[in-house]
Amino acid sequence: MNNKYLYEDLLRMSGVNPKKCMRCGKCSATCPAYDEMEYHPHQFVSMVENGDIEPLLNSDSLYKCLTCFACVDRCPRGVEPAKLVEAVRLAAVRKQGANHLKADSVPDMLDDETPQQLIVSAFRKYSK
């Protein structure tokens, strides 16, 4: 595993133990953003476990997770895949200049009804 440091950091941040996964795929069965994702929740778990983290860091899938916690609640093994996705996303956006959402692009995304909550949440998720 050439990503040992990152691997351990992800586990520490997320509190997830990917070894508990029994490969049932219920997380991906329940995921509302599945079709938009290149890598699906169960792949996040197995790829992190195998140290295959680089493709995840560069994938748009990081920004498709809705953090709806459906996979967290429905996982029979208590793996909590969403927390792992979040940790990988933070590992990506915490880097200098790696913000996924730039303030300049926001005004075009708004309409008259956009609630403040939407903007705040998107920034929390996509930028550091």
Binding site: A33, E36, L66, C68, L118, I119, S121, A122, K125
Partner: peptide, 19 residues
């Protein structure tokens, strides 16, 4: 108890629409 799409409405309005 299924997600409406949440903050994805910002970047992927189509996904929010589907949900």
């Amino acid at each position: 108890n299924e997600c409406c799409g949440g903050y994805i409405a910002m970047e992927s309005p189509d996904l929010a629409k589907k949900k």
